[in-house]
């Protein structure tokens, strides 16, 4: 078959893979929902979780779509669509796709696809091998000392958040444009604090549900004027 990065058969293959992985997500969603009901969780909490997750996801998902569009000029649509829908991360895929400057033939295409896929081998298999052991370890920590178990989980979250807080400041040495992410970060943080205050003053509980998506959208939008000013 003649080489075409946007061949219909590639779309079909990617469509099948994504359909199977979506089925996995539906399987775990239904299973965990039923489990929640069975252990006595309020259905309203479960339903709200579904709504919150959906709303939360839209803005970051659109930014992933931007990555697909960017990569599609070099690799066609099916491969970036696959790589950014499953396991992949935009930062890795862009670097991995850079192993060749221009994809001109099928041999280059399959080689780039192999590099992009093989980079995720550890992420694919290690959780399958170690997931159970790590979870059992967490249960042991909790059983041994429940109070420390709570602090341990908080420390895990805070460790990750602190690293990304630092990351936001990681471009300040490059000049004024490097401060744009910092300003976006603070806009988002201020919006969150305002949501908290508004919730306290008014008691509007819906604010609680959508505070973080609101922060994300306002924060992202603020990057546009900041870029005009500092970019």
């Amino acid at each position: 078959m003649e080489f075409d990065m946007n061949s219909a058969i590639l779309f079909v293959i990617v469509g099948i893979i994504i359909a199977v992985i979506t089925a996995q997500a539906v399987f775990f969603l239904v299973r965990s929902y039923r489990r929640g009901v069975k252990i006595g969780m309020d259905k309203r909490v479960l339903n709200k979780t579904i709504a919150r997750s959906a709303v939360f996801t839209i803005a970051p998902a659109v930014s992933i779509l931007v990555g697909i569009v960017a990569l599609s000029q070099k690799l066609g649509l099916p491969l970036p669509w696959l790589r950014l829908s499953v396991i992949g991360s935009l930062s890795y895929e862009i670097v991995a796709a850079g192993v060749v400057e221009v994809v001109e033939n099928a041999s280059q295409y399959v080689s780039v696809a192999l590099v992009m896929t093989a980079g995720m081998l550890v992420s694919m298999f290690l959780p399958l091998i170690l997931g159970k052991k790590i979870h059992r370890g967490m249960v042991k920590i909790n059983q041994k000392d429940k109070v420390w178990g709570g602090h341990f989980m908080t420390a895990l979250f805070m460790g990750m958040i602190s690293a990304f807080l630092g990351y936001v400041f990681g471009g300040v040495g490059s000049g004024s444009a490097g401060w744009i992410p910092v300003l976006v970060f603070f806009v988002s943080a201020i919006v969150m604090a305002l949501c908290g205050l508004l919730l306290k003053k008014t008691g509007w509980k819906w604010i609680n549900d959508y505070a973080l998506p609101i922060c994300i959208v306002i924060g992202m939008a603020s990057a546009i004027p900041f870029n005009m000013w500092l970019g």
């Binding site: 489990r35 959906a54 996801t57 839209i58 779509l65 569009v69």
Partner: peptide, 28 residues
């Protein structure tokens, strides 16, 4: 965190997030 309730909420949120991401990307 670490309770069965957290397990339920975490799994549900990741499942919904995955489905919505797939949908956004398919539409895109």
């Amino acid at each position: 965190s670490g309770t069965e309730e957290a397990e339920v909420i975490s799994t549900m949120s990741i499942a919904v997030s995955s489905i919505v991401t797939m949908l956004v990307l398919v539409l895109g």
